[in-house]
Write a protein that binds this DNA or RNA. Sequence first.
DNA 1: TTGACTTACCTGTATATACATGTAAATGAA
DNA 2: TTCATTTACATGTATATACAGGTAAGTCAA
Lengths: 137, 137
Amino acid sequence: MDEKSICAAQAVRSTARLLTRRYEDALRPTGLTASQYTILSALTRHNGLSPSKIGEVLSFDQTTIPRLLDPMRRKGLVQLLPDPNDARRKVVEITQEGRDLFAQANALWQQAQDRTLDRLSPEEWSQARSLLAKLTD
Amino acid sequence: MDEKSICAAQAVRSTARLLTRRYEDALRPTGLTASQYTILSALTRHNGLSPSKIGEVLSFDQTTIPRLLDPMRRKGLVQLLPDPNDARRKVVEITQEGRDLFAQANALWQQAQDRTLDRLSPEEWSQARSLLAKLTD
DNA sequence: TTGACTTACCTGTATATACATGTAAATGAA
DNA sequence: TTCATTTACATGTATATACAGGTAAGTCAA
């Protein structure tokens, strides 16, 4: 019937709220939020990203990045350094504390991830990601 | 392969951020946010919901509801009334202004919705919703 | 009827998110 | 070289989101 009248934004957003609560509940012993975990994950693989690149890779608006990094800097998880090649740019580096906390968080993340993907076959999870990508071009 | 190591929360959350920007951009002439539009939509169909019921239906934490309703009250879109049967409860009612603005917003919403579902067949959209639901039990 | 318990809502606080705008630095054309 | 333009980041402001904890009201058993 009216399937096209179901708001796509609402469907994805409400799922995001529920998953955020689930993952942040799992991450609670580390004090990391879902966004903070995501940023640490990106820096673990590609250290020294610029703030704008982090936004681009993770689909955050540029102006959101300084706000997300602030509590992470206060906790000593990352540091912002000037880019030696361009005084406008900065470089975000994960600290050793950040690496240690991320390693600890990974085991907790796995619990939430397992619980989330438990009821999906690998094919379904692959298809879910493909459909999510299609929603945003 | 590594498909199970892709964070489900990140996949859904980043899609939610992108869709939120798309829908709020479409709704901008009305000044409505995605959450406000969603709440007005629920009230249009079921007027007089309690705050806690709104949270339950839309997957908001209970404590988020007063914060979401505040700007809507200031704009005169909804009003909170005491529940005559239970002094603890309240009843959220959409105003005529709220109905008028929602009617105007619907046409704008449709543009974002069309653009979003454009590349999906009805079957794919049905499956996407089913898979999203599975992620949260 | 009283008192423990539960329910419903709100507030304090912190982070998340993004738009509009501001500032400094780099770039590139005249 | 100069200056308009662009790029990169930050800040002001507003709403979003939820956890911890608070208050008032309803419930129910002793």
